[in-house]
Design a protein around this nucleic acid. Structure first.
Lengths: 149, 149
DNA sequence: TAATTGAGGACTATTCTAGTCCTATTTAAT
DNA sequence: ATTAAATAGGACTAGAATAGTCCTCAATTA
């Protein structure tokens, strides 16, 4: 199903909440209470987002987390790779180590193009887009095939 | 990592092989030998592809599998959903059942747009594209953000 | 009728994910 | 200084999903 992990899903919920109330420091406990996600899980996600420099943390009493950038500057691609590592559909696309398919694996080049296409799609959607009221899906235009001439 | 399952990966290898030699019937055993993938696994994949009407099978001696359509008419999206079910990044995108996130889950609408974008990207790439020599990734153009106005 | 090949489904083992918890570190307030 | 409130980092467990195998039945050809 080409699915995103549950943690990534949670991350978007958390970030959406923070984006609506930016420039304010939120403690993990507060976020857990608001979103309904269990505290340890929230903690784990927040730590990953700090490592990816999506959030900035402050320790100690009155500490907490803030967005490192504006919602417009945080892409969905960034969030996904923070939680799940590099965005790539196949192992091959990351490293060609251990690709033991004797024949048939000349397809690497084109896969990487597909990967890049999807990456670009996710890169072009930001947190700001997510918290906006739902857009009407219309005129979705992705001319990938044309690239192959 | 937004990853595709290994089986899907195998499927593209198998289909690539068959596409290079279309209109010819290939037995599962032959495909296993050529691709280096274990026979039971190959079998499993071929069955799924038949169910999805990507392949046509013939039973009995001299039986085997052929592509149901030309490589140009078989999209990557079709292959992926044959192996992994509907293409969607989040559970929510498929059914809104059991979405228990109290607040913060107004984001459904925009997620579905992202899903559709990715779906379109995968729909526009065909098997024929995959077996072509690698394209130079350049001028990949996916204007998603613009959709949000 | 025998040999070959796919259909269908059950089953197992392994890997991955989700989720929890513990200890150390940092900061603020008293 | 000391205590309380937070995050950092990592280890650990349980459960779910995936990969992979195997067995029996059905169909076709020679």
């Amino acid at each position: 199903m080409l699915r995103l992990s549950k943690l990534t899903d949670y991350a978007t919920v958390i970030l959406s909440f923070m984006a609506r109330d930016k420039a304010q420091v939120h403690a993990a406990m507060e976020i857990a209470a608001v979103t309904g996600i269990a505290l340890p899980t929230v903690s784990k996600i927040l730590k990953l987002l700090v490592n990816a420099k999506v959030l900035i943390s402050t320790r100690g009493a009155k500490g907490g987390y803030v967005l490192a950038r504006t919602p417009e500057e945080i892409s969905i691609a960034t969030v996904i790779s923070a939680l799940e590592g590099p965005i790539a559909l196949t192992e091959c696309s990351i490293s060609h180590q251990g690709c033991e398919q004797a024949s048939g694996c000349d397809i690497g080049g084109n896969w990487s193009l597909i990967n890049q296409t999807i990456h670009n799609a996710l890169e072009s959607v930001t947190l700001a887009d997510l918290i906006r009221p739902a857009a009407i899906p219309e005129e979705v235009f992705v001319p990938v095939a044309s690239l192959y001439r």
